[in-house]
């Protein structure tokens, strides 16, 4: 991180990022709910999840997306490098009381754009099924000028 933003010159199409695993437990979901001000009870109450027809509490989709973002921002060396970040939510991440769920994120550089920007496509899986689809980040690897 302290080394600053990754240089676009050293990045090519097909470069792999990760894979990296992230553990999600109930405490993480409660903490995320508070910080993100998202108190939908299906993310912390088994009873609420059951009423909604879910097997158990599920992680916030935005928390899963944020984990994918961590892979990208750590790789880029600067959270401000991500200009455009999008995904579809294609599956749920159940988080039981007995142990954490594992979310595995992997990225691939798929396009080199102008101005030192690159496209990173991400696969995000839990229990070997995709929970995010078409997850894509446009990352600006050109150094930003101070004082913008």
């Amino acid at each position: 991180m302290a080394e600053g933003r990754r240089s676009a010159a050293a990045v090519g199409i097909g470069d792999r990022i990760g894979p990296r695993g992230f553990e999600l437990d109930r405490a993480r979901l409660v903490r995320y709910a508070g910080a993100a001000l998202d108190f939908n009870s299906i993310h912390w109450s088994d009873q609420a999840a059951e009423r909604a027809g879910l097997p158990e509490v599920i992680a916030h989709g935005m928390l899963t997306m944020a984990l994918a973002g961590r892979l990208v921002t750590d790789w880029a060396g600067d959270p401000g490098a991500v200009e455009d970040f999008s995904t579809r939510f294609s599956g749920m991440v159940p988080v039981g009381v007995e142990g954490p769920a594992m979310v595995v994120v992997e990225g691939t550089v798929t396009e080199l754009l102008d101005g030192g920007r690159v496209v990173v496509e991400l696969t995000v899986e839990a229990g070997r099924s995709a929970v995010l689809k078409a997850a894509r980040a446009v990352v600006n690897l050109a150094p930003s000028s101070p004082g913008i």
Binding site: G4, R5, A35, A36, L37, D38, M62, M65, A66, G69, R70, V72, T73, D78, P79, G80, V82, F85, A137, P143, S144, S145, P146, G147, I148
Partner: peptide, 15 residues
């Protein structure tokens, strides 16, 4: 890193 202050993670806009 060129920022005017502490930057937020990319998904913070959704919050």
């Amino acid at each position: 890193l060129g920022h005017r202050d502490i930057p937020a993670p990319p998904t913070f806009g959704s919050v």
